[in-house]
Amino acid sequence: MKRNLFLKAFLLVLTIFSNVASAATVDTVLTHSKAMKKNIKAVVIKPESYSNDKRFPVLYLLHGAGGKYGEWINKTPDKETVKRLADRYNMVVVCPDGGVTSWYFDSPVDPTYKYETYVASELVEYIDGHYSTIKDRAGRAITGLSMGGHGGLYLAFRHQDVFGACGSMSGGVDIRPFPENWDLAKRLGKYSEHPQNWEANTVINLTHLLTPNKLAIIFDCGYSDFFYKVNVDLHNKLLDRNIPHDFTVRPGGHTWDYWQNAVAYQMLFFSNFFNRTN
């Protein structure tokens, strides 16, 4: 009886703690992209421990197709999730606006979409210039959900001098099976007419850029997700190439409930990476 009462009391404390607002602070900043000749908003989450007297690692956290920069702090079922994790792991989290369907590459057919240049170069330069950050790949990680999962791996694979760790949650890591979806044809041209664009800009075809242990890699996907198969295919290809990585499959689909759970595991992974390298 006493044990049951203790357990109930313990669970109550956990529930209360989980509902307490985080102490992290949130900036909404206006950055500029010279490549696209426009201003772009981003959310910057600073942990409670943030100080100009210390340099902090940075996680770039990307949204999915149809989304925008503020989603990671206003669409998770518990709106405080990412802020609490930033506090727990003492890292700055940057959530840029990646356009509705940019897929985070520089479009070979539409010069107004250069989100690879923006995120991997212009935004990193802005953050390092305005915040107290570790200005090195050992202090930078990038991940995201869905389209942002593609972006997290795509940008890190192609810019290993910028990012030391990367991830994906429910990511579209092979876009070729989806030629009619998410404006991909607008960004790359129709697959039937420009197959080379699709082959060159899908994550699963970029594993040749990797060498073992150069990047810390984590990705996951739900069993019920329409991207499940392409994630398993990427996992198997990395195994074939002897590229170390963490790959997790859990129950769940393409939902915010899933991503709220997934981001906690990924931020722990990145925290461990930062602690090893800094």
Rank of each mutant, 00 (worst) to 15 (best):
G129E: 06
A120P: 00
G98M: 00
V119I: 15
S107C: 02
V43G: 10
G66S: 07
V43Q: 11
K68E: 12
K46W: 06
D128P: 03
Y50E: 12
E122M: 03
L30S: 15
K38I: 12
Y50S: 09
T101L: 09
S102V: 01
S51K: 12
D128L: 04
G129W: 05
T101A: 13
I73C: 06
K79H: 12
Y104W: 12
S33F: 04
V93Y: 00
D110L: 04
K41H: 14
G99K: 03
V20D: 11
V93C: 03
T117Q: 14
D27C: 11
V109I: 12
A35F: 03
R88E: 14
L123T: 02
K46F: 02
V94M: 00
I127Y: 01
N52H: 13
T101M: 08
T101G: 10
V93T: 02
R55Y: 02
K54R: 15
M91C: 13
S33K: 04
S121K: 15
A65Q: 11
T117S: 14
Y60L: 01
W72L: 03
M36R: 08
V93N: 00
R84E: 11
N39R: 09
D78T: 12
S102W: 02
E80L: 07
V44F: 04
S51F: 10
S33P: 04
Y113Q: 14
S49F: 10
S102A: 06
A86D: 03
K79A: 11
Y115K: 00
H32W: 08
K34H: 14
L61Q: 10
I127C: 01
Y60P: 00
K41N: 15
I73V: 15
V119T: 07
G70A: 11
A86C: 11
K37T: 13
K41P: 11
N74S: 14
P77Y: 08
T81A: 08
I127D: 00
E48Y: 08
P111D: 15
D78F: 07
V94D: 01
N90G: 15
T31C: 14
D97F: 02
Y50D: 09
A35C: 07
I127H: 00
K34C: 06
K46C: 04
A120D: 02
P57E: 13
S49D: 09
N90T: 08
V92E: 05
E116A: 14
V94S: 00
P96F: 03
Y89D: 05
K75N: 10
E122F: 03
Y113G: 06
S51A: 09
V109W: 00
G64M: 12
G129D: 05
I40F: 06
E122C: 05
N52M: 13
F56Y: 15
T76Y: 14
T101D: 11
V44M: 06
A24L: 01
T28H: 12
V119Y: 01
